[in-house]
Amino acid sequence: MKAAQFSRFGGPEVLEIVELPDPHPGVGEIRIAVHAAGVNASDWKKRQGLMDQELPQTLGYEAAGVVDEIGDEVSGVAVGDRVFGASPYGAAQAESAVLSFWAPIPAALDEVHAAAIPAAAETAARALDELGVTAGSTLLINGASGSVGSAAVQLAVDRGARVIGTASPATHDMLRELGAEPVAYGDGMPERVRAIAESGVDVALDVAGSGVLPELVDLTGSAQRVVTVADFVGAQQTGVRFSRGDSGRATYALAQVARMAEEGRFTITVGGTFPLSQIAEAHRIGEAGVVRGKLVLTVE
């Protein structure tokens, strides 16, 4: 099969499409013929050598496609089903991928949008669980307009929480449509939050890594009421929890999001699509941060 890989660390130019042996699912796993695969910041961090030093490395943690092989002890899915999900092996940007958790693609979603969901939905749900967000909670999300942020908004609203989201003014209308109360980020953000949340903020989630953890701690009253998925150094400095999934993943989120999407209550923005052969260009655009929404690779 064709797959994205790099054999040395560096810029997007080190990426190449190579031939690799077809993978096969183990116990509790399935394999799909990949039609679309999401691109994440972790991909270029891997490529830059910031995550581990093993070479060569493949890429991709989320994909959508059609089931073509089923491992032992798997039920509820059949060859030919359309599914989206996550690969534990970091090799989903390929013609075939093994998934460890998945959900059916609802009719309301095409495969490109389905491939953009798994990492964002799982990360958002896991962080909300760690914060204990429930009906009646007032949640502040720093960076609410991105893929993880917008997923967190929709999942928190579904739980019955009040959501305040920091984002650029250009995205405020979109956040209102998702059910959040938008606030501009930047200088004066805490004062703007307090102006609309007179009773205070219960918990806060940072998905932007923009150096505001001290302000979030101040707004919630405790570092234990703040979780970040983007600022590891800041978490160490402030005592805030850094969520990384090591203690368990919110795998239930895919089925939940699939139901919500079918009911018209979940959306995700795709900022651009690229053929697998143009993965280097996808990395260049993603790293530049000039496109709002998830980038997705398509596989013919």
Rank of each mutant, 00 (worst) to 15 (best):
I196F: 08
V83A: 09
A119T: 12
L131I: 06
E95A: 14
A167V: 05
F84H: 07
P88Y: 05
A144C: 08
A135L: 03
D202T: 09
A124S: 05
D158M: 00
D158V: 03
V98T: 08
A91V: 05
E69L: 10
P118E: 02
A156E: 05
L175I: 10
L205Y: 01
D158N: 15
V203M: 01
A152Y: 02
G85K: 01
Q93Y: 09
A184H: 07
A94Q: 08
Q154F: 11
D129A: 12
V79N: 02
H113Q: 09
P169W: 15
A78S: 15
Y89R: 11
Q93S: 11
L178K: 10
T123N: 01
D110S: 07
A116I: 09
E181K: 03
F84Q: 03
A92K: 06
E198Q: 11
D81G: 10
S100D: 11
S168L: 14
E181D: 13
G76F: 06
V203C: 00
T166W: 06
D206C: 06
L178M: 14
S199N: 13
A107L: 05
V183H: 08
G179K: 13
A86H: 14
S100E: 10
F101T: 03
Y185G: 10
A156Y: 15
G146D: 13
A119Y: 02
S168C: 12
V163Y: 13
G186D: 09
R162T: 15
F84I: 09
G132V: 07
L128T: 03
A121Y: 03
L205I: 08
V74T: 06
I117M: 04
I105N: 03
L131Q: 01
W102C: 06
H113P: 03
R126A: 03
G80K: 07
P182D: 10
L109N: 00
R176L: 13
A116W: 02
V207M: 08
E69P: 00
A195P: 04
A167L: 12
A94M: 08
V77I: 13
D68V: 12
M189P: 11
G200H: 09
M189R: 05
N142G: 03
S137P: 04
